[in-house]
């Protein structure tokens, strides 16, 4: 919690680091070529996805192994919303995609939240797999092969604004900045949710759910709300992922993506939004690095995942924060001794 005594000065350092990162992200497209701008766009999209999962794993204590379902379904909504060779309106299709993902999370949440612990892990995975098969086995949207989205969503406003187009998603720099803004907005939104009374309740549920119930909290509703928020945000990420790649296929809902997302959250440090975002960046950098080394890069990735699970349970940020906490505590005790 933010009121934890020894870490008082850590948030200050955290904010500083955050501002530096933000400045770097703001300036980056000015100095590097298209490939890297697109790469970082992709990383930021995955960061939004990882943060949404962190709300469940790190803040509510719900280990969902099916989070890719909400990501992928939103991508399919965009594919459906876009008439072939024409652009869908961003202002219609984005809210629609997020609403569908959120609604899906609501329905699935009503089932999976009846379980807890290991059951919850297995059941979230199973439901995601069910959706995977819906898209994989039927001709709803191209089956196994997936569907191309030839034109990115159109940001033009309606007649009332004279059809003004504030930005063009076909332009990779515009897309970059739009995604950056969404990343920052997601961070602010989740930060506020976590600090709100609701956020304290889910934190309490994570620590001791039975006691929350005896204090008068209908915990199921809070968990469901958290599940729906996370699903909706995952949908937003999935929408932009589909828009950027110009392609959706069933793997977008697959369990490998769900597994990768868990890895991102833990690698960066769960229960810290910045950690989840950092984890997404690191994970994709690792992927790039390993792919450059060998065609059997999954071996290295799998090994890294095993290593993180065994050696880095608190993730990069968690480990740094613990080290910082110890340092501050040591300084404090020096001062009181002297």
């Amino acid at each position: 919690m933010s009121a934890a005594a020894p870490g008082r000065r850590a948030p200050v350092a955290g904010v500083a680091v955050l501002l530096v990162c933000l400045a770097a992200l703001l300036l980056m497209p000015l100095g590097v070529d298209k490939f890297y701008v697109q790469l970082v766009t992709k990383m930021m999209i995955m960061a939004v996805f990882a943060m949404s999962l962190d709300l469940l794993i790190g803040f509510t204590g719900l280990v969902s192994f099916g989070h890719a379902a909400y990501f992928g379904v939103a991508g399919y909504v965009l594919a459906y919303a876009a008439p072939q060779y024409q652009a869908a309106s961003l202002w219609v299709s984005l809210p629609l995609a997020m609403a569908v993902s959120g609604l899906l999370a609501l329905v699935i949440g009503l089932f999976v939240l009846r379980t807890s612990g290991v059951y919850f892990i297995m059941v979230t995975l199973a439901f995601a797999q069910m959706l995977y098969f819906v898209f994989h086995d039927t001709k709803l949207a191209g089956g196994t092969d997936g569907v191309y989205i030839y034109v990115r969503p159109d940001a033009a406003l309606g007649e009332w604004a004279g059809g003004w187009k504030p930005f063009d998603l076909e332009n990779f720099v515009h897309l970059y900045y739009v995604v950056l803004v969404l990343l920052v907005l997601t961070w602010i939104f989740l930060r506020r949710v976590i600090d709100s009374p609701f956020g304290r309740v889910i934190a309490g549920i994570k620590v001791n759910e039975p006691r929350m119930r005896s204090l008068g909290y209908a915990t199921f509703r809070y968990k469901l709300a958290s599940f729906v928020i996370a699903g909706t945000l995952a949908g937003m990420a999935g929408y932009f992922a589909a828009a950027q790649f110009g392609f959706v296929n069933p793997d977008m809902l697959g369990w490998h993506l769900s597994g990768s997302a868990i890895m991102m959250v833990i690698l960066g440090g769960m229960g810290t939004l910045g950690g989840a975002a950092l984890g997404a960046f690191m994970m994709m950098l690792l992927e790039l690095l390993f792919q450059g080394l060998t065609k059997h890069w999954q071996l290295l990735m799998g090994g890294s995942i095993v290593g993180v699970a065994l050696l880095l349970p608190h993730g990069l940020l968690g480990t740094v924060a613990a080290w910082w906490g110890r340092r501050v505590a040591a300084k404090d005790s020096e001062r009181t001794d002297g």
């Binding site: 933010s2 506020r192 949710v193 600090d195 709100s196 009374p197 609701f198 956020g199 304290r200 709300a225």
Partner: peptide, 12 residues
Amino acid sequence: LQPSMRFFAPAH
């Protein structure tokens, strides 16, 4: 608190 679901104002 009533209503019990409050998402935005800081709890503290």
